[in-house]
Every structure is written in C-alpha cells, then in structure tokens.
Computed example of a mutant assay.
Amino acid sequence: MVKQQRGQATVDLVLNSALRVYAEAGQQGFTVNAVTKASGVSLGSLYHHFGSFDGLAAALYTRCMGELFEQMIAALLRTRTARTGVRALVRSYLRFTEEQRDAALFLHASAYSGYLAVHAEEISAAKSVMLQPVAQWFGARVAKGEIAAMPGPVIEVLVMGPVAEAARRWLSSTYEIDLAEAAKLLPDSIWRSLRPQ
C-alpha cells in the first residue's frame, strides 16, 4: 500500500512538473531532460512509470482532458433544460481554459504534436469513456425532442468546435479574442444550431 502511494506520488510529481515545463518552455523545451530536471525524478523512474516520454505526454494529455471533462460534466448535470445545459457546457469549457491555462494550452497544442500519435488509441478510448455522460445527456434531449435529431458526432462538432476554436485562439495570443465576451455570445449561438426547427 505504501509503495503504491509512493508510486502515485511520483507519477503526480512528474505530471505536474511536465505541465510546468511545457507552460514555461513551450513545445520546443518540453523534453525528457527538462522534465527529469524539474521533477528531480531519475530517467529510469520516469520510464518505469510511463514507459517512454511519449507515454508521459499521453498520460499528461489524458489527465488534462479528464480535468476538463470533469468540470464540463459537473456543470452539465446541474442544469434542467437543454438550453441551460448547452450554456453551462460552453461556459465551463471557457472557464477551464482561463482558470487552468497551462492544462488547456497543453491540450490544444498537443493535439497537433507527434508525441501523442503512438498512444492515439488509448487516448481515444479514454476520451470515449469521458464523453459518455455528455453523449447520454445529449441523447436524452434528442429523444425528448428538445434538441434537433442529429448524429452524436455532429452534435459534438456543433457544440465543441466553436468553443475549442475560441479557446485555441485565446491561448495562442495571435488573435484577439475576449473569453468573457465569447462566454456571453457563444452559448446562444450554439444553442440556435441545436434547437429543433
């Protein structure tokens, strides 16, 4: 039990250090040497827990994604109507982006990096599990006629696409976008694309 706790403490230390390294040094500075130096964990220990540096990146991506989904699902499940649910989902994503900028940055930037490719199947499987409560919530609203009948992936694109793009632009700092303004405007725009005609 104690050994298991120490192992989990090491995993958490390495993941926290890796996120800090990524936030401070960017993708170019996100290296195994930088992470071992920041965490104080040996290279052997890192490989023992994650298998490879790509395995570490995949574990960090999955953890950040889990934190985002946890917030979105909590917000979604507190609502009573389809419209308030969509609004809560959109706003929780944008709030996560602002409040947990480092995790949001890693999620958005890593989606286009090569180091997750090796673990694409396990990341996809983890995302599928995390997405299940959201898919069930939307499926129930479609069944009740509160949301237009569309395939789940189309609903996901309509809801998550604009929000993810707003977050990506804010995180990149290359476009001027105000997240507070996006949180006011996007929910109703997205809702209009989902409501039955």
Rank of each mutant, 00 (worst) to 15 (best):
I73C: 12
M130H: 05
L179Q: 04
L116I: 13
S42G: 15
G152R: 05
I147F: 01
S52K: 02
A23V: 06
A180R: 07
S110L: 02
W191L: 01
R95S: 12
F53T: 05
A120P: 08
L77R: 12
A38K: 05
Q136E: 15
N33E: 15
L116S: 04
A183Q: 05
D188I: 04
R169N: 10
T31M: 11
Q71N: 09
F53W: 05
Q27R: 14
R78T: 06
D12S: 11
D54V: 01
H49K: 01
V129F: 01
G139E: 10
G145W: 06
L76D: 04
Q28P: 01
V35E: 03
S124M: 11
R192P: 00
N33H: 14
Q100A: 09
L89D: 05
G44I: 13
G139A: 15
V154A: 11
Q197K: 04
R20T: 09
A82I: 01
A9D: 10
Q71D: 12
G85W: 00
P196C: 04
S124L: 12
A148Y: 04
A104D: 01
L107E: 02
P153A: 02
G114H: 09
A58W: 11
S42H: 07
A23F: 06
A167W: 02
V163A: 13
R6A: 12
L94P: 03
G145R: 10
T81E: 00
T79G: 01
R6N: 11
L89F: 14
A135R: 14
E165D: 13
Q5R: 12
D12R: 11
S17M: 03
Q136C: 13
D102V: 05
L107V: 07
L60P: 10
Y112N: 06
A148R: 12
V129K: 07
T84V: 02
P162D: 11
G51N: 06
L116R: 07
W137T: 05
A135Y: 11
T10Q: 10
T97W: 03
V11C: 00
Q4Y: 11
S124T: 11
S39L: 07
V86F: 00
I190P: 00
S189L: 09
G44R: 13
A25Q: 15
V154Q: 12
G29I: 11
I177P: 01
A59K: 08
Y115V: 13
V157F: 13
V134D: 03
E121A: 15
E98G: 11
L56H: 06
R78G: 06
L158H: 08
F50I: 07
I177G: 02
S193I: 01
A164K: 14
E24K: 07
E176F: 02
L77F: 05
G161T: 14
E98L: 11
V118W: 08
S193V: 00
R192W: 03
V32R: 13
A18E: 05
V35K: 00
V90L: 03
I190A: 00
P196N: 08
A140L: 10
L56F: 07
T31H: 03
L60W: 13
L15H: 04
V86A: 03
L56Y: 06
K184G: 09
A25L: 14
Q71H: 11
A59N: 14
V129G: 00
V154G: 02
H49Q: 07
G29Q: 09
P153F: 12
A111E: 08
S173L: 01
A182F: 07
L185A: 14
A182R: 04
